[in-house]
Amino acid sequence: MQLKSFQIRELQEAVALERSETAYKVLFVQLYQSAISFTTTITKNEEVAEELYADAMMKLWFMESKLTDIKDLKLYIFILLKNSALNYLKKERKQRFVSIDDIDRGDVPQTRSVEESLVFNELENMLAQVIDKLPSKCQIVYKLIKHEGFSYKHTAEILGLSVNTIEGHMSNALKKIGTFLKSLNLKD
């Protein structure tokens, strides 16, 4: 289940104005997978991603009524996560400056364990593996658009890249996935 933007808005208001823990829990749980997957692609470390997500959500809770000032909460959370993930990389690599262009360095994350892979059916599983092997930036752009339903503009805003670059990465990701699928010799 993907939350629709009007649903997010409703939950956001329930948290801000009624301090509803139930609404807060729904937001936390429903955005969890997307947020962790996104942040892990940058940090290459799932545990760190979990911590950063918890910190971001904690921040939202303590914004209290100011939370309603945020126009697009999901976009806001992803921007927050991108910034804290890059900050983490900066500390980790002891660099003064780290941008989204630097994230392809370092280890390839093991995002899917063997047991988890068994849950997917075979094609789904292979597709997931191809996506995992895409260059990090391609992968992030692909997931933000395909899985999260962000527009070019919002994806560009989250990553601090231009709209043209986003389209380039997305077409590139699709092409790589397409080439792989074709190699399987698909039949109906």
Binding site: M1, K25, F28, V29, Q30, Y32, Q33, E50, A54, M57, M58, E116, V119, F120, L123, E124, L127, K146, H147, L174, I177, G178, L181, L186
Partner: peptide, 23 residues
């Protein structure tokens, strides 16, 4: 295949619920 919506993974929700308990 390229256009189809991604499948939901129930396992992820369970993990999210566990993470929320701690949170």
């Amino acid at each position: 295949l390229l256009i189809q919506a991604p499948v939901d993974n129930d396992k992820g929700i369970l993990k999210a619920e566990q993470a929320y308990a701690l949170h």
